[in-house]
């Protein structure tokens, strides 16, 4: 028994679509948020490239972030060239593609910047450069960033986005975790401020080193923050892992993040924090 008479109801059968017209419609007009799965018109993504529904910040290139974050920027160490310590098959091709795609020499952009009049050392990792993985040059650039900041008495703000260690550079990638940690410690002992901003995704060796070493740890809404990958956890423990386990909001609930800051408020919040720490101490001077 049918509820409706098929012939009288407007259905796909009655619409004669020109298949050639379909090809003329460009893709990417409608986007879906990977976190809340809401669809929206691409122009609603806006300057900050965030989901209009849940404020999740889409993965963006380091230079795109720079455009709305700072007032002035002087790039450092742009000429350092990545080595290939393992003679890894086709690694050079992969690097070349990533360089062209991001306009960076490795997965982090570093330099000296000004935000609302406050001078700082700034690092922005780029998730488009081999998943923001940490190679030797990534490590070297971040180490130099901290050393320069220590020398010049500047605070450091670092935006993290990384899949973790770079497999193609093997154990050398792992050593960067220790190398950067030393530079962070030196900077910290000099009494200087270090703010990390965890963006989607911050995982593996980056979470297990400089991402979690900030004096203040901020995160973007719904950014993935974790140590082990979800698949690895499920394979090891043979248990289903809740989807939101590694959402920044959950990590905050467990006490490892200071605050979640939406992209459109990021500049203002950072400016406030930088200024706040520049006011000088009043106690026991």
């Amino acid at each position: 028994m049918q509820l409706f008479n098929e012939l009288k109801t407007l259905g796909y059968k009655h619409i004669k679509a020109d298949k050639k017209a379909n090809e003329k419609i460009p893709s990417g007009i409608w986007l879906a948020c990977p976190k809340c799965h809401q669809s929206f018109y691409h122009k609603d993504l806006g300057l900050y490239q965030v989901c209009p529904n849940c404020e999740y910040g889409f993965r963006i290139k380091a230079r795109e972030r720079l455009a709305w974050l700072v007032d002035e920027f002087n790039e450092d160490d742009a000429a350092l060239k990545t080595k290939d310590p393992l003679d890894f098959p086709d690694y050079d091709k992969k690097l070349e593609k990533a360089r062209q795609n991001t306009g960076l020499n490795d997965s982090v952009l570093t330099g000296t910047a000004k935000i609302a009049g406050e001078l700082l050392s700034l690092g922005i990792m780029d998730p488009n450069f081999i998943m923001g993985s940490m190679g030797t040059i990534t490590g070297e650039k971040i180490t130099r960033l901290f050393k320069r900041a220590t020398r010049k008495n500047l605070p450091v703000v670092l935006f993290t986005a990384s899949g973790g260690a770079r497999m193609q550079e093997g154990i050398f990638s792992l050593m960067q975790m220790a190398k950067i940690s030393q530079a962070v410690q030196e900077h910290s002992h000099a009494g200087l401020l270090y703010i990390t901003v965890l963006t989607d995704p911050t995982t593996g060796g980056v979470t297990a080193s400089f991402a979690m070493q900030g004096d203040i740890i901020l995160a973007e809404p719904r950014a993935l923050v974790g140590f082990a990958g979800k698949r690895v956890i499920e394979q090891t423990t043979h248990q289903k892992v809740p989807n939101e386990l590694q959402d920044a909001e959950t990590v905050l609930d467990h006490g490892f993040i200071d605050a979640i800051v939406p992209r459109k408020e990021m500049k203002k919040k950072l400016a406030w924090l930088l200024k706040f720490h520049n006011e000088g101490t009043v106690a026991n001077g």
Binding site: A228, T237, H254
Partner: peptide
Amino acid sequence: PGQSAEENGQGE
């Protein structure tokens, strides 16, 4: 790599 380890801040 387990759920409890993630919740207790393995990375940190």
